[in-house]
Write a protein that binds this DNA or RNA. Structure first.
Length: 534
RNA sequence: GGCUCCGUAGCCAAGUGGCUAAGGCAGCGGAUUGCAAAUCCGCCAUCGUGGGUUCAACUCCCACCGGAGCCUCCA
């Protein structure tokens, strides 16, 4: 059995618990994916990015992990939206699923093992509903099937709610329910709706049942980790939990994880504006009212048109957005906006510069050189033997980083250690005088590689620094042209500087800065980089 | 009304019952540079307010103020 010191905050118990898997060395985890009726927004990326990172860390820690993300492709919203657009529900679902997946790819989310669709899982869903009816937890009324919450004494344990406080969905279904908190397992179809054949007539599944059915098929009756946004705790996860536990007579999930929600910075700005106006008109008494009003605007929601994730990625790069999400704890509420993302980007640049510096000084490619093969498993780490303080500090920081990850996947704390690793490596370069040929001894270069491999190892856990940062227009030909031109310009400037014609050299440099290219003068010549700061 | 959660420097953000309260952005001082940039070194917080528990609290408890979420579809 894998021994580990991982602790996970469990929504079910509201405490951090030591991580114990059901089966030795294996982990099953399930994340509630999107309802694919509209383009994704950044809020939909929080879960995938953190779970992608969790999987990476668990694999790194020695577990074999199966990660499932479901796609809800049948639902009221899909039906309505497809009608609006005049296309079939399936066409809409296919298009929006593609959008979702391409966004995931941009953010480096590539650890998902299964992406089951609800419409591909009808047999299991129907079977699941049948089993619930047989066990007396569900009842049929007309063509609808409902879960009977009164039959489950533990109902409400996840969200800490009592059954009699339930409002229920209301609508015309309400009259067919035994109690307001009952929820639909199967909904009878209206004539013009997509539907499937079932023992209760043509219809479609309720929202919650698909997750219970699909997770059972792939991960079994009880599995280790189930996640989703905080907003899913009730009713979605509460209902899933109830269905599965009642059907199987055993717990559905050991650890329930919930990520905090995103808030748009633009909308927050609006709040301030409104308040300012309220104050200037002397309406102090109602100062709270506009705030309350505005809060509904700060929330990101697709219905309010907060899409445009693809554009956001284009503007900031996927890695920047990923890093931004990982900078804070996954359970906290995060305010995002261009300014926030730009700041995350500015801090990332320091890593890119270090990596560039490394490649220039060693001739080793950070990303795909065999010399940079790093530890994919925590236990295979071999500590570099050296008395060099900077490298020893990097080793110490690695431990600090890992113990932060052990503590409920504290990526926000861990990124702090990563910055310190970068600083240590720069210090090492300075102290060992690697910028000068004399300093580039076999030993120093070996230590340099060893240190950078640790940066790569830790970056890989977070899913960053896996490939060169995206630059605009990076096709091969234009890249070569660009390199040639820059070489020429740098030569012109260097000649001018040799002749102490600083007016000339500065004019070249300033001109380049104006178009977003930064020069770095070193001991052995000048290098350049694209200064992204958007 | 019920149930959660949060309030740490100009901004973002970790964290802890007692040792110097991480890190980033911005800023300032120094080294380096022809000048810059980059890099390195240094500076920059007593943890919303008021009580309480304790030998000791920013960390636990209570109250208050402020903010967010859920209770209806939402990652």
């Amino acid at each position: 059995m894998t021994t580990n010191s991982i602790r996970i905050y469990n929504t079910l118990t509201k405490t951090k618990e030591p991580f114990q898997t059901i089966e030795p060395d294996r982990v099953g985890m399930y994340l509630c994916g999107p309802t694919v009726y509209a383009e994704a927004h950044i809020g939909h990326m929080v879960g995938p990015v953190i779970f992608d990172t969790i999987k990476r860390y668990l694999v790194y820690s020695g577990f074999e992990v199966t990660w499932v993300v479901n796609i809800t492709d049948v639902d009221d919203k899909l039906i309505n939206k497809s009608r609006e657009k005049g296309i079939s529900m399936f066409q809409l679902a296919t298009a929006m699923t593609a959008d979702y997946l391409s966004n995931l790819q941009s953010l480096g989310v590539d650890q998902i093992d299964h992406l089951p669709r609800a419409t591909d899982s009808m047999d299991e869903i129907i079977l699941f509903v049948q089993e619930l009816i047989e066990r007396g937890f569900a009842y049929v009324n007309g063509g609808d099937v409902f879960f009977d919450v009164m039959k489950d004494p533990q109902y409400g344990q996840l969200s800490n709610r009592s059954v009699d406080s339930q409002q229920g969905e209301g609508g015309d279904a309400a009259s067919r329910k035994r109690s307001p908190g009952d929820f639909a397992l199967w909904k009878s179809a209206r004539p013009d709706e997509p539907s499937w054949k079932s023992p209760w007539g043509q219809g479609r599944p309720g929202w919650h049942i698909e997750c219970s059915a699909m997770s059972r098929r792939i991960l079994g009756k009880t599995f280790d980790i189930h996640g989703g946004g905080l907003d899913l705790v009730f009713p979605h996860h509460e209902n899933e939990l109830a269905q599965s536990r009642c059907c199987h007579g055993q717990p559905m999930v050991t650890y329930w994880l919930h990520n905090g929600l995103m808030q748009a910075a633009e909308a927050k700005g609006k709040v301030g504006g409104k308040n300012d106006r309220a104050e200037s008109t002397g309406a102090e008494v109602t100062a709270q009212q506009p705030t309350a009003q505005a809060t509904s605007e700060t929330k990101i929601s697709r219905s309010k048109g907060a899409g445009g994730l693809a554009k956001l990625i284009e503007r900031h790069t996927g890695e920047r957005i990923r890093f931004f999400l990982l900078r804070s704890h996954y359970r906290s509420t995060t305010i995002f906006g261009d300014e926030q993302l730009a700041e995350a980007g500015a801090s990332l640049e320091a890593f890119y510069r270090l990596i560039q510096r490394f490649e220039r000084l060693t001739g080793v490619s950070f990303y795909d050189d065999v010399a940079m093969a790093y530890n994919h498993k925590r236990k295979t780490f071999v500590e570099p033997t050296t008395s060099n303080e900077a490298i020893k500090e990097v080793v110490r920081l690695r431990e600090a980083f890992l113990s932060k990850m052990d503590d409920d996947f504290n990526t926000g704390g861990a990124t702090g250690d990563l910055f310190e690793v970068a600083r240590c490596m720069n210090r090492f370069i300075d102290e060992a005088k690697l910028e000068e040929a004399a300093g580039r001894s076999q030993e120093n270069l070996g230590l340099f590689v060893a240190g950078m491999k640790i940066l790569k190892e830790l970056g890989a856990i977070l899913g960053i620094f896996m490939k060169p940062p995206k630059q605009s227009g990076n096709n091969q030909d234009s890249q070569e042209l660009l390199d040639g031109l820059m070489k020429l310009l740098i030569q012109v400037r260097t000649d001018a500087r040799t002749k102490r014609d600083f007016a000339m050299s500065d004019s070249v440099r300033d001109g380049l800065i104006a178009i977003g290219v930064a020069l770095q003068d070193g001991k052995e010549g000048t290098t350049w980089s694209i200064a992204k700061s958007t």
